[in-house]
Amino acid sequence: MLEKILTEENFSALDELLERYKGVPGPLMPLLQGAQDIFGAIPEEVQSYIAEKANIPLAEIYGVVTFYSQFRMVPRGDHVISVCLGTACYVKGSQNIMDKISQAMGIGIGETSSDGKFTLVGTRCIGACGLAPIVTVNDDVYGKVKESEILKILEKYK
């Protein structure tokens, strides 16, 4: 997996990003966000590259990467299924939907299927509580999802 993302092209995009944040106070968060956009994750190799170029201790970078839930060190599958586990969705039964997908795909929360196709995640409220319960697949948002319909929805992405 890693060889696929640690390409020369990606590193030169990272160089451009580093250049842009030279001299900006407090650059680490936007640097890491940008790096994750480029590589799809922030593996150790990328962290030490940033550490050296931006002159920030690697330990500090690692500390920040592991603190925030949106940063990840391994890339995700082709399709990301996220089930909202925010309050409004939970009250409307989103946990059952999560369980159903998890069972059908044989993967737990945060895991990627062995064929690299699907990653299942639980999200916090995405601010669409009026349509609870919410499931998103990549950028597609499904509202008022019924437990009985969810597998049919996912069929489209197989």
């Binding site: 968060m29 966000q33 925030y68 839930s69 949106q70 940063f71 916090r124």
Partner: peptide, 8 residues
């Protein structure tokens, strides 16, 4: 603008 990264 500064973006959060998912920490309540």
């Amino acid at each position: 603008l500064r973006l959060g990264a998912g920490a309540f």
